[in-house]
Computed example of a mutant assay.
Amino acid sequence: MAEILPESEALPRAVDLLGAGAVVAIPTETVYGLAADATNGEAVARIYEAKGRPRFNPLIAHVADLAMAERIAVFDPLARKLAAAFWPGPLTMVLPHRADSGIHPLVTAGLDTIALRWPRGFGARVIAALGRPVAAPSANTSGRISATTAAAVMADLGPRIPLVVDGGPTPVGLESTILKVEEGRLTLLRPGGVAAADIERVAGTSLARGAKAIEAPGMMASHYAPEAQMRLNAQSVGEGEALLAFGPHRAAGADRALAVRNLSERGDLREAAANLFSHLLALDRSGAATIAAEPVPLEGLGEAINDRLARAAAPRNT
């Protein structure tokens, strides 16, 4: 079973384990990440093994500063502008990969691009102390609900990893926005913790959507899925269903729900994003065969929330 250490005490132990090729669950501002040295193929393979993750799904390489990022990928002026506005923070950019970066091919899953993010807080500190980038997908079994607390990581991955760093609940509670930057063009590959409108405002250009291939993490049709089935945009609740609510007004029959969790009583999308995975996990543990999800607006962070709910409701990979 994993050792669990508070963030204030964990840095030396985490660096030692990462340097030895182990995987470590670390807090970031988005969700907890399962980190390994991105230059060490065996270490990266341990991420896949711990998560049961398909090998065609690439990983995000996390860096400690812009200089480290520019040793790994080619930044055009637009990418630098976005980095200046949103890094460190919950934005991942997919950029041309430098062949001499030292990043192991398992991280990129054979692509000639690489997904890069500079996180805040403990993530950046541990990478700086290690002196190398880390690959760090969400710290959960592949395709399941992402962890926003150390307790959730322990319950899922505790027997498979040596250390969980406890930094408390993650403040964003939703994975990073993934944006492909290519010759001055922007393509939204995954909505997330930075709203598309904020990116467009800084970039001065609109985002394209609709990538046809898996170019970044979180693009599989079925992802973030609970064991229970999901029913979206529910206007009523069936007998024995659990209810994922939003806002002050309830779906018809909410009083007969097996369990209820409200993403935000006041209809605040930032609060809803932070609560999404923990509430899904709580409802999944209620014993309900189906979770009915009330409608969530599509604007702002609602786009990312609806993306996660749609993937949770998609036909499951077998």
Rank of each mutant, 00 (worst) to 15 (best):
I60P: 03
I60C: 06
I60E: 05
A61I: 04
A61T: 11
A61C: 10
H62C: 13
H62T: 12
V63Q: 09
V63P: 07
A64M: 08
D65R: 11
A67S: 14
A67F: 03
A67M: 06
M68V: 05
M68Q: 13
M68P: 07
M68W: 05
A69H: 07
A69Q: 09
E70R: 15
E70P: 03
R71L: 02
R71E: 14
A73Q: 06
A73E: 06
V74Y: 00
V74D: 12
F75G: 00
D76M: 01
D76V: 01
D76W: 01
P77R: 03
P77W: 05
P77M: 08
L78N: 05
L78G: 08
L78T: 03
A79P: 13
K81I: 04
K81R: 12
K81C: 07
L82S: 00
A84E: 12
A84G: 10
A84D: 11
A85V: 04
A85Y: 05
F86K: 00
W87R: 04
W87I: 01
W87T: 06
G89P: 01
P90E: 00
P90F: 03
P90W: 01
L91G: 06
M93Y: 01
M93C: 01
V94E: 11
H97A: 15
H97D: 14
H97V: 06
H97C: 13
R98N: 05
R98F: 03
A99F: 07
A99S: 14
D100S: 12
S101W: 14
S101H: 15
G102R: 10
G102Q: 13
G102A: 13
I103G: 00
I103W: 07
H104W: 11
H104G: 05
L106M: 13
V107W: 05
T108H: 08
T108A: 12
A109G: 08
A109E: 07
A109I: 03
G110Y: 05
G110M: 08
G110R: 06
D112T: 15
D112E: 14
T113K: 10
T113Q: 09
T113L: 09
I114P: 01
A115W: 02
A115Y: 01
A115V: 03
L116D: 02
L116Y: 02
L116M: 03
L116W: 02
W118G: 00
P119N: 15
R120N: 15
A124I: 12
A124T: 11
A124H: 06
A124S: 14
R125L: 13
R125Q: 15
R125E: 15
R125P: 10
V126R: 05
V126E: 10
I127S: 11
A128N: 06
A128H: 05
A128L: 05
A129Q: 08
A129P: 04
A129V: 04
A129H: 02
L130P: 07
L130D: 04
L130W: 08
G131D: 12
G131N: 11
G131M: 10
R132V: 07
P133E: 02
V134Q: 08
V134K: 09
A135R: 04
A135H: 02
P137I: 11
P137V: 08
P137K: 07
P137C: 12
S138C: 12
S138L: 09
S138R: 09
N140M: 13
N140K: 10
N140V: 09
T141F: 07
T141N: 00
T141A: 07
